[in-house]
């Protein structure tokens, strides 16, 4: 039974990972390309890691939950890198299928306020 669940999760994760990279290769401008990898790969790798946790937990040598850590880490970091990439693309004014609205990126964005009291 566990083997079927693991197999399904592995197949699902691999297909989603592949589709994410396909989006990266196939779509037309940078902003649409951004959507494929940052989301699809998170779910794809997440389900692969879930499969791995299930597989190693079902071997009778106790629980194996450390895969959850990578999943958690990916779910925290993937949006941050997507946001930074989008910000960098706006900053460089890359050609886009739909133009950003007038006034974006704001000119004042280049100098982010820094909280000097903290240091």
């Amino acid at each position: 039974m566990v083997e079927y669940v693991v197999s399904f999760l592995i197949l699902f994760g691999a297909v989603i990972t592949f589709i994410g990279s396909l989006g990266l290769a196939r779509l037309q401008d940078f902003y649409t390309r951004l959507h494929g990898p940052t989301k699809a790969t998170t779910l794809g790798v997440g389900s692969l890691l879930l499969a791995s946790a299930l597989y190693f937990s079902s071997r009778g040598t106790g629980w194996s939950l450390h895969e959850v850590l990578i999943t958690l880490f990916l779910f925290i970091t993937a949006p941050v890198s997507a946001h930074l990439l989008a910000k960098a693309a706006l900053h460089l004014r890359l050609p886009a299928l739909s133009q950003p609205p007038r006034g974006w990126p704001p000119a004042a964005m280049e100098m982010e306020p820094r909280d000097d009291k903290m240091y």
Binding site: Y31, L34, H35, T38, K39, T42, F75, A78, P79, V80, A82, H83, A86, K87, A89, L90, P100, W104, P105, P106, A108, M109, E112, P113
Partner: peptide, 15 residues
């Protein structure tokens, strides 16, 4: 959250 969900990426926060 916006970056993780329905085909949306948050690109920039105004100052």
């Amino acid at each position: 959250t916006i970056c993780l969900t329905p085909g949306t990426v948050s690109a920039c926060l105004s100052p």
